[in-house]
């Protein structure tokens, strides 16, 4: 018999979180959360750390409407986990204010002066490069889940007791 397989994804408005059956030890050791649930709980573009290994992070946020502009001294990466999200890029005229030693992204006061580089429209499962020392912003018509491969920085929020199984 041939089987037609259905791949089960999830979204910010439709997820089915798993869990932990403990036998011994502390459930908090597994730091168990869900990127969709986290994105659904907090304000648009409020990045919440869902995984951390020394200074490195995976962060989740809700993309909705237009975001502020951000930049970073190093590459970061963003993945659209459910709905469409635009990423806009600007090559800034002045990058001298970026501290090479400072990890993590930070917010710019305004849309920076520079040359518009273009945009990428991400759909579910699409990953985008956020190149070092480039300004970027996001735009999404409806709430969507955006996950970052990043480093702990000004925009990273740690809310472990609120997001994890205890």
């Amino acid at each position: 018999m041939s089987v037609e397989y259905k791949t089960t994804f999830a979204s910010i408005d439709n997820f089915n979180k798993g869990g932990v059956q403990m036998i011994a030890g502390n459930i908090k050791d597994y730091v168990f959360s869900n990127v969709y649930e986290v994105a659904s709980k907090y304000a648009p573009y409020e990045r919440v750390v869902v995984a951390k290994n020394l200074v490195y992070t995976i962060e989740s946020c809700k993309a909705e409407g237009e975001s502020p502009w951000y930049t970073c001294s190093h590459d970061e990466f963003a993945i659209a986990f459910d709905y469409d999200i635009e990423v806009h890029y600007i090559k800034m005229d002045d990058t001298s204010f970026i501290d090479d030693e400072k990890d993590g992204s930070f917010r710019l006061d305004d849309k920076p002066a520079g040359q518009y580089m273009g945009k990428i429209t991400l759909s579910r499962g699409h990953q985008a490069l956020l190149p070092e020392k480039t300004a970027y912003s996001f735009k999404s018509a409806k709430p969507a889940t955006l996950v970052f491969q990043a480093i702990l920085g000004d925009e990273s929020n740690e809310k472990w007791p609120e997001i994890c199984l205890t």
């Binding site: 999830a10 798993g18 059956q21 403990m22 168990f32 995984a51």
Partner: peptide
């Protein structure tokens, strides 16, 4: 010795100690 069983579904994040 057994410690736990994790069921991970789409979007779940977990740490292996």
């Amino acid at each position: 010795k057994p410690r736990a069983s994790l069921v991970m579904r789409a979007g779940d994040v977990a740490c292996m100690p």
